[in-house]
Design a protein around this nucleic acid. Structure first.
Lengths: 241, 241
DNA sequence: CTGATCCCTGTAAAAAATGTCAGGTGCCAA
DNA sequence: TTGGCACCTGACATTTTTTACAGGGATCAG
C-alpha cells in the first residue's frame, strides 16, 4: 500500500523543471500505466497564447473526429468536468439525466475506437478549465476497493497538469505588468463604473491626474480602452472587482 | 477498505439540498471525524455578495487573531493553497523555503491553541479560491499508508465546498442577467478593446446597432460604463475574454 | 548627485461613448 | 393574430475618453 503513491512522488520529481512535451507525456504514461492507463487526453484552456491546448494519444481518427464534430459541446465528460471539480468515472457522468442522448452517441462512437470507460480529473483555476481524461479498461479500477488507486490517478493527473501549465506559461514567459498603487486604485474605480471626473472627486485629485494614471495603466496592460484595461487587470488578478 | 469511502458518499447524499450552514457543518464534521478531524476552517472568496466567507470551529480567540493580524498574507497554508490545486500537509508547505520566517511564527502561535498540523484542500475555480483546512493531530494520518484516508478527506472537503458554494449562491438569489448572443458578442469585442465603430466593421453592422446592443447589455448588467459592463460580464462568467 | 520612478497638474483637439428621439424587420409562442 | 422579443438603423446633442503637447515636486537606490 505504501508503494501506491510512489508513482505520484516519482512523477512530481521527474516533472519539475521539464519543459518538453514528449518527456512529460512519457513520464505521465509510464507512471499511470501502473493503474491500467494507456490512453489519455489533456485539454488546457488557461493560456491566452494557446487557448485550446490539446494533447492526447487517442487514436488520431477519433481525436480528429471529436474535434471536427465539436463533441466538446455535447459530451458528458467535458460538461461534467466544467460543472464540478470532483473527479469522476465517465459512465457515472453519462448516467446523469442532464446530459442528453447525444452524449450516448459520442460514447458509442468512442467504443468503436476501443475507448469504453475512463476517469476524468477536472482542474478549475482562475485562468480557466483544464481536463485530464484517462481511458481505463480494467473494471477493477472502478470498484470501491480501488478508491486509493483512483486517488493516485487523481494526484498524478493534477501534477501532470501543473507541469504542463508551467511549461505553457514558460512559453509565453511574459511577466505580469507591474501597476503602481495609484494605478490599481483608479482602475478599481473604473471597473466600478466611475468616470474620470468622479474618481477625481473620490480621491481628491484633479481629473487630469486620474486620467494620467489610467493612461499609464492602460499602456502597461497593452489595452486600447479603459474597458479592455480593466478586463485585463481583472483576468490577470491585478485588481479584484 | 470498501467502507473507507462510505463517508464521502454519505456526505454527498446528506448535503444535496441542504442550505443550512449549521447542518452542513455538522454533517461534514460527523463524517470527517472518522479521519481524526475535529477542527476545520473554510474560506470561500467566490461570492460577490460575501467575498470573504469564513466559517470555522477553531478556537474563537485564534480565529479572531488570525483575521485581525491578516495572517492570510504570510501564512504558508493559504499561500500554498493559492499556488496549487493539490491538497497538502501543512508542515510540508511550511518546509518550503519560499514561505518566510513569518509563516513559522504563525504556526508557533497556532500551536498555543493546540492546532499543530493538518491538511488543506484548495479548490480553485473561475470565480476565485476556496480553501478547506482541517486540523489533524493523529500523525498516522500522514503516513504513506494512510494515503487513501487522506483522499477520503480530499473528497469530503470538495463535496463540503460544493454544498457551501451552492448555498452561498442560493443565498444571493439574484439570477444571472440573461444576455442575448449579440450582446455577448459585442461585449466580447469591447473587452478586447474594440470601439463601437470597429465592432461594426467586424460584425458588418451599423455602428448604431453595436451601440444599441452594448447599451442593452450595459443596462442588464447594471453598469454605468462599458468598462464596468465588461468587468461584470467577465466576473459573472457571461463572457470569457 | 543623478537617474529612475512615482506622483501631480495644465491646455486643447480629436475620437468615442452616452442619452434621447424615432422608427422598421422577422420570428415564435400565447 | 397579436404581442413580445431579438434584431436592426437613423439623426442629434452631450458627455467622456483618448491623445498630444508640456511641466514641477518627492523619494530612493546606485
Amino acid at each position: 500500500m505504501d508503494a501506491l503513491y510512489d508513482p505520484v512522488d516519482a512523477l512530481t520529481q521527474e516533472l519539475s523543471g521539464v519543459h518538453d512535451q514528449e518527456q512529460r507525456q512519457a513520464a505521465f504514461l509510464r507512471h499511470a500505466a501502473a493503474f491500467g492507463v494507456s490512453r489519455y487526453a489533456y485539454l488546457n484552456t488557461t493560456h491566452p497564447s494557446d487557448p485550446f491546448h490539446v494533447e492526447t494519444n487517442y487514436p488520431a481518427a477519433w481525436a480528429e473526429r471529436y474535434l471536427a464534430q465539436n463533441y466538446m459541446a455535447v459530451d458528458a465528460v467535458p460538461l461534467e468536468a466544467a460543472r464540478s471539480p470532483v473527479p469522476f468515472r465517465w459512465s457515472d457522468a453519462l448516467a446523469r439525466p442532464e446530459y442528453g442522448a447525444k452524449s450516448q452517441l459520442v460514447f458509442a462512437e468512442a467504443a468503436e475506437f476501443s475507448i469504453r470507460d475512463g476517469f476524468t480529473v477536472p482542474v478549475h483555476s482562475a485562468a480557466g478549465l483544464s481536463i485530464i481524461s484517462v481511458a481505463i479498461d480494467d473494471p477493477d479500477m472502478f470498484r470501491p476497493s480501488a478508491a486509493a488507486r483512483r486517488h493516485a490517478v487523481h494526484l498524478l493527473a493534477m501534477h501532470f497538469h501543473l507541469a504542463c501549465d508551467r511549461a505553457l506559461g514558460a512559453g509565453s514567459a511574459e511577466p505580469l505588468p507591474r501597476l503602481t498603487p495609484r494605478e490599481r486604485e483608479v482602475l478599481l474605480w473604473t471597473a466600478k463604473g466611475k468616470t474620470g471626473w468622479e474618481i477625481a472627486q473620490i480621491l481628491n485629485l484633479a481629473e487630469r491626474t486620474v486620467v494620467y494614471h489610467i493612461e499609464n495603466a492602460r499602456t502597461k496592460l497593452g489595452a486600447s480602452s479603459r474597458a479592455q484595461a480593466v478586463v485585463v487587470a481583472v483576468t490577470l488578478g491585478l485588481i479584484r472587482p
